[in-house]
Amino acid sequence: MRWGRTYFGVQALAGALWWVAVFTAPIVREITLGSLNPVAVAAFDIPLFVGGSVLAALGVKAAAVVSTCWTGVVATGLAGYATVTAEAGWGVVAMVAATVGSVFALCLVLLGRIPTDWLVRGPFAFRPAAARPTAATHVVSTFGQIIVFWGLFLVVIPLVARFLEQRWAIALPVPAFVGPVGVAVLVLASALGIWSAVVMSTLGNGTPLPSAMATSLVIAGPYRWVRNPMAVAGIVQGIAVGLILSSWVVVVYAIAGSLVWNYAIRPHEEADLERRFGDQFRRYRDTVWCWVPRLPTA
């Protein structure tokens, strides 16, 4: 709870300083509010965002809820406004970041923790694959998942992000060589992802999908050098797509995905593996690193 209240205190100070800048620096007003009337916006935002954050920092839980909800409303409204008018793009970036921070802080204030276990419930709960399907069936299922997930996370979402980045006028200049580098990195990362998927589905008797996980611990192929080669491949692919599109937003999106996976998903996945495979997984975890490739000792 203390860290949540601390965040709201910092947010209140940042919000107050931002409003001072809005009324004293035209450039700040232009890039964050566009043509919106700052007085009209301030009439709502100062009491609900700044004032609400102050009260939340003092321990008023209802104020934390109000401040978080208002931050989300402003982020959504600004995103719509920026998409229609091509103004206030950096205001959207700031409010989206504030919304994410506020949600995390609200969880700490209300629950005392960030409930990452909610992410692995229902259809995303960890379950071993059914025993009947053959290795060929698992391979086909795995490649079906690759088509869907790569299409969504490496094509659709990045293209939408790139469009919004351009529309909101928040794109940054990048060197010309970045695109070709991104293509090379994408090819290598994709090869790693496919190799990892084939090994997982043929030797693990399962798929990468949490609802049909491998029933055998896989420590062959790329899994000999790094514990999560598919995650490594996915993150690098996302960054590579960002380079190809010359989009810092897509690069940030990929890095944010790595943080979510590492701190929210991986602990639950590894706890499940430890429950199912015991000492075999513990020995593997102690000798093979999660993110950085390491030559096996034996």
Score class of each variant (00 low, 15 high):
Met200Glu: 07
Pro173Trp: 10
Ser246Glu: 13
Ala176Trp: 12
Gln145Asn: 11
Leu243Ile: 10
Val148Gly: 02
Gly144Thr: 12
Met213Gln: 15
Arg224Ala: 12
Pro180Lys: 06
Val236Gln: 04
Pro210Leu: 12
Leu188Val: 09
Asn228Cys: 00
Phe163Gln: 03
Leu245Val: 02
Pro180Leu: 03
Met230Ile: 06
Trp150Pro: 03
Leu217Arg: 02
Ala161Ser: 11
Gly234Val: 08
Ala212Glu: 15
Tyr223Met: 01
Val226Asn: 07
Val178Trp: 13
Arg162Met: 01
Ile194Val: 15
Tyr223Ala: 00
Ile157Leu: 13
Ala214Ile: 04
Arg162Cys: 07
Ile147Leu: 14
Val198Ile: 10
Val218Gln: 01
Trp195Thr: 08
Ser216Leu: 13
Val156Ile: 14
Pro222Asp: 07
Gln145Lys: 10
Ile147Gln: 08
Gly221Thr: 03
Val187Ile: 12
Gly234Asp: 00
Leu154Lys: 09
Leu203Glu: 12
Met213Phe: 14
Ser216Arg: 15
Val156Phe: 11
Pro180Gln: 09
Ser247Trp: 10
Asn205Phe: 13
Leu164Cys: 07
Ile244Pro: 09
Leu186Lys: 05
Leu192Tyr: 07
Val226Ile: 10
Thr215Phe: 06
Ile146Gly: 01
Leu186Val: 05
Thr215Arg: 15
Trp195Cys: 01
Gly234Thr: 06
Gly179Lys: 14
Arg167Lys: 15
Leu172Ala: 14
Gln237Ser: 13
Val178Thr: 15
Trp248Leu: 13
Gly204Pro: 09
Leu217Trp: 03
Val236Lys: 03
Gly182Cys: 03
Thr142Ser: 15
Phe153Glu: 01
Gly204Gln: 11
Phe143Lys: 09
Val198Pro: 02
Gln166Pro: 06
Val181Arg: 00
Thr215Asn: 10
Met230Glu: 09
Ile157Phe: 11
Phe143Asn: 06
Leu172Thr: 15
Pro210Ala: 13
Ile170Phe: 14
Pro222Tyr: 00
Phe153Asp: 08
Ile157Tyr: 03
Trp195Ser: 07
Thr142Asn: 09
Ile239Cys: 00
Gly182Phe: 00
Val160Tyr: 07
